[in-house]
């Protein structure tokens, strides 16, 4: 951990969200310190993705508050929301690359918008540099997303997430669907960019290897609430039955196998 201050960089206070009659978040309380890498684990459909989408503003919570650097961000509109979004970077589970444009435009998309936009040449050079950092060669820059393998798409998505060097990054299941070698490559890349850039990161995963390789802190969400939150070194000895069952993948325990 680096640069930890008293005021958390990200704080969720009693966040609740329901979709129709389905209650997904039932009062999530979570804090992430500046420069910290938090990994959220939990079963499918327990509200992990919804949690980070409420922080980004893609989903509006029904109750509770979300604070960045101690200031509530709910209801931020116009330029204040733009300023907030410019601090975020996100790697989506499926990559979410724009399939109508080549890889280099995907990566530098944000940098080609607005008053201080880069020229196309500079944006392309920057995209190639980010590709190199994510282990891809310059020849990838002119390909379209449909021409890339799953692992390459993840790496391009990662390059796009870090292109503008955001302070806060979100990674939604970064290793889902990848082979173990590619998963390790992606985990190391994430750990590397978070450490080098001093960014605050929240990662969602089911993959316990990712937890070990990426996390400073780990939180487990179950039935819309944080069941356990602590340092990665305590994961094995948490003493929390949900956590124990989940990390060891046991069928028996407080988490129902058939949900």
């Amino acid at each position: 951990m680096t640069g930890v201050t008293d005021i958390p960089r990200i704080e969720m206070r009693g966040v609740k969200k329901a979709f129709g009659s389905k209650r997904v978040l039932e009062g999530v309380d979570l804090t992430v310190a500046k420069g910290e890498s938090l990994v959220i684990i939990g079963g499918s459909g327990t509200g992990k993705s919804v949690s980070i989408k409420t922080i980004i503003g893609l989903i509006e919570p029904d109750e509770g508050d979300i604070l960045i650097d101690g200031k509530s961000i709910l209801g931020a509109r116009g330029s204040s929301r733009d300023a907030l979004l410019s601090r975020f970077g996100m790697l989506f589970q499926g990559g979410a690359l724009f399939d109508s444009m080549p890889v280099w435009r995907n990566i530098s998309f944000r940098l080609l918008q607005g008053r201080n936009r880069l020229s196309a040449d500079d944006a392309r050079d920057l995209a190639i540099e980010k590709l190199r950092r994510c282990g891809l060669g310059p020849e990838t820059a002119d390909l379209f997303p449909a021409e890339l393998s799953g692992g390459m798409q993840k790496r391009v998505g990662l390059a796009r997430a870090i292109a503008a060097e955001p302070e806060i990054m979100f990674f939604d299941e970064p290793t889902a669907g990848l082979d173990p070698i590619m998963a390790t490559v992606i985990n190391q890349l994430i750990r590397q960019v978070v450490s080098e850039m001093g960014a605050t990161a929240i990662t969602i995963t089911h993959d316990m290897r990712s937890v070990v390789e990426i996390a400073d802190q780990v939180a487990m969400i179950h039935q819309g609430c944080v069941q356990w939150h602590g340092p990665v070194s305590d994961v094995e000895n948490s003493g929390e039955p949900h956590m124990d069952q989940f990390i060891h993948g046991r069928e028996d325990g407080p988490i129902e196998a058939v949900r």
Partner: peptide, 10 residues
């Protein structure tokens, strides 16, 4: 999620 991605890219 490309529409969500657009939002996160300001």
């Amino acid at each position: 999620e490309q529409i969500d991605a657009l939002t996160t890219l300001s």
